[in-house]
Design a protein around this nucleic acid. Structure first.
Length: 257
DNA sequence: ATGGCTTAGTTCCTAAGA
């Protein structure tokens, strides 16, 4: 089975690209981020007509995550993370689908840093770690898939220097990500491409795509219960080059059934 | 230092993204 994470950067603006992707690749499960739409304004009918069962967790204007599944409807387990009741940003959605627990994650960007947005990012990462710990304790087969907004290693970016002051690459962001992995999660892309140099995002500005000046921030984390089912991991890079593309490319794992 | 994209909303400018 193929499980994809794809930050679409606006699902209404991206709908033709997303429908193409679903038709051409036919992934089994798709975690979406940055819907920038409410549950009332998402293209629910179009996704269903494309053969997918959607579970939406939208928000007006910003954020918004979803889980799409081809065979059976995702059964919701949780929306949002605990620990900060006043947080109304739609960034976490967890469901059971196809015998897996799947989470669609849109981790806060955190720029500019230092500042309140960076503090929110670090708090959010701790809240995610708390949830992730529970999933491991319960020993469920789980995939935490999404836009983590963390460049974990120097070889995960085209330029360490260009990104040095960015929230994506601060030591605090990296350490929080490493602590999460150290719970027992497997970074699937890293495992299959240990030398780095694999990008999932290319900025719209300054010719980043034609220069191949990207970085890897979309991650799929596998729980121990399914880590040995990992067969392949990659990026469907060509979709970044299409007309009116998202600045992220679909990033995926293939698991044995 | 440069140059300056894309989306959505309180829409013809601004905020946010990364």
């Amino acid at each position: 089975m193929k499980l994809v994470t794809y930050n679409v950067n606006g699902i209404k603006a991206r709908l033709p690209r997303l429908l193409e992707y679903l038709a051409e690749v036919q992934p089994d499960i798709v975690c979406l981020q940055e819907l920038k739409s409410t549950d009332e304004t998402v293209p629910d009918r179009e996704i269903r007509d494309a053969g997918y069962h959607p579970l939406w967790h939208g928000q007006k204007g910003f954020n918004g995550v979803a889980i799409l599944a081809r065979d059976t409807p995702p059964v919701e387990r949780q929306r949002g993370l605990g620990g900060e009741p006043e947080d109304e940003q739609s960034r976490y959605l967890e469901a059971e689908v196809g015998g897996l627990v799947v989470a669609s994650i849109y981790l806060p960007n955190g720029n500019p840093q230092p500042g309140p947005k960076f503090d929110y990012k670090l708090r959010w990462m701790e809240r995610l770690a708390t949830r992730a710990r529970t999933l491991l304790t319960d020993e469920v087969p789980a995939v935490l898939a999404g836009d983590y907004n963390v460049i974990a290693n120097d070889d995960d970016t085209f330029s360490v220097r260009a990104m040095a002051d960015d929230a994506l690459m601060q030591p605090e962001s990296r350490e929080a990500y490493r602590r999460l992995l150290a719970q027992g999660w497997t970074d699937a892309l890293r495992t299959r491409h240990p030398r780095g140099g694999v990008w999932t995002f290319w900025d719209y500005q300054a010719g980043a795509w034609p220069r191949d000046a990207g970085f890897r921030i979309d991650h799929l984390l596998l729980s121990p219960a399914i880590a040995d089912r990992l067969r392949e991991a990659g990026v469907d890079k060509a979709y970044r080059g299409r007309d009116k593309a998202s600045d992220h490319a679909p990033t995926w794992v293939r698991l044995t059934d």
